[in-house]
């Protein structure tokens, strides 16, 4: 119960901060486009939901332990410089390039990389526009030039009818191309891969792909409508697009999309492993071989106790089963079975 109250408070705080940032960033809503208010409320709800779930997640004993240790070890002065180098490497190789997904499978990587960058691009364009943090204005006395305003401050200008202008104004088209290609690859894998077929679920695995596809296609239809069809059906299409986007935003805290917010925990784990590898190792109580960092073993003993497990050993050569390496556990299982045949 206390966890839920804490998560709710966090949810409202972060949502409130975003709402305040929207008001201030759009200069008291002066640059806020009222037509986009539905998107704004969907984002605010999603922010509450994501924060709530994230907070609940962080309060689970193993997650709380990693969260605490990840920060402790990252900020430890003796390891900070190395950790920063490690952080840059992880962010570029694992997050920007998705190398670990590449190693899991090239098809999977292609799909994920395209979807990820498509979504990153779309988010970077739409969220600041919806919040009124970015807007464009024609230059006074020159209708052929647009100037970009960020938080109300003038920045760079560009000719409307130029390649740069074309690229900027069609940013969401490029993003949708990436997403659609990625969704196609992902769908192909899900339809052909027997292993995936055995465990995939509609809500968890297909719905996110369908939503991304729907958002991208309805977005493209808007462009097609105003570019080639003289705005035919534009109102209906904009409504349809809004429904798909808002549903996707509302779905963010609940389904597979939540992994976007969980994935950075991989960074904390890598610091934990890196520092653990440099410090004292735990030796198996049975075979005496090192098998993990002592920090990891002792932290797990704490977590298991918090979860209600009782792996403590009474009257044995060690006081806890966690001091035995996985290989010895497997051997002991066979020996224990063999012992039972000795009358």
């Amino acid at each position: 119960m206390q966890e839920k109250v804490k998560a709710t408070v966090w949810g409202f705080c972060v949502m409130g901060l975003l709402a305040a940032a929207i008001v201030f960033g759009s200069r008291n809503l002066a640059h806020f486009d009222a037509a986009l208010v539905g998107y704004t409320f969907a984002v605010l709800f999603a922010t509450f939901g994501i924060t709530y779930r994230y907070s609940m997640w962080l309060q689970r004993p193993p997650t709380a332990m990693y969260w605490k240790r990840g920060w402790q070890l990252f900020l430890q002065p003796a390891f900070l410089a190395g950790n920063l180098v490690h952080w840059v490497r992880k962010v570029t190789v694992d997050f920007a390039f998705n190398r670990f997904i590449f190693n899991r499978g090239k098809g999977r990587w292609g799909a994920h990389w395209l979807i990820m960058w498509g979504c990153v691009l779309a988010t970077a364009i739409t969220f600041p526009l919806v919040f009124g943090w970015i807007h464009f204005q024609t230059e006074p006395g020159n209708l052929e030039w647009y100037r970009t305003y960020v938080f109300g401050f003038p920045t760079f200008a560009f000719p409307v009818h130029s390649i740069l202008g074309f690229l900027i104004f069609h940013g969401l088209v490029w993003a949708s191309f990436l997403v659609i290609a990625g969704v196609m690859l992902a769908m192909r894998r899900r339809m052909k891969d027997h292993g995936a077929a055995a465990v995939q679920q509609f809500g968890e695995d297909f719905l996110p792909l369908i939503l991304l596809f729907a958002v991208s296609v309805t977005g493209l239809m808007l462009t097609a409508s105003y570019s080639w069809m003289r705005g035919q059906g534009y109102e209906f299409l904009s409504l349809l697009h809004a429904i798909t986007v808002i549903f996707t935003l509302l779905w963010l805290p609940f389904g597979k999309f939540f992994h976007i917010f969980q994935r950075p925990a991989q960074l904390g784990v890598s610091f934990y492993k890196r520092v653990g590898g440099l410090e004292t190792q735990a030796h198996c109580a049975r075979c005496k071989e090192p098998f993990a960092s002592l920090l990891h073993v002792t932290d797990l003993m704490t977590v298991q106790q918090q979860l209600g497990y009782k792996y403590e050993i009474e009257n044995g050569p060690t006081d806890h089963y966690q001091h035995i390496c996985p290989a010895c556990r497997r051997r002991m299982l066979a020996i224990a079975q063999g012992r039972m045949w000795n009358r």
Binding site: R108, F291, R330
Partner: peptide
């Protein structure tokens, strides 16, 4: 589940039967 696993090895070290395998190159 591949989208979620962060390759921490908690499961590898906690399984009482010593079953899970950590594929470091896959962070999985």
């Amino acid at each position: 589940r591949k989208p979620r696993c962060i390759g921490c090895s908690n499961c590898v070290l906690s399984c009482p039967f010593g079953v899970p395998k950590m594929k470091t190159e896959l962070e999985l």
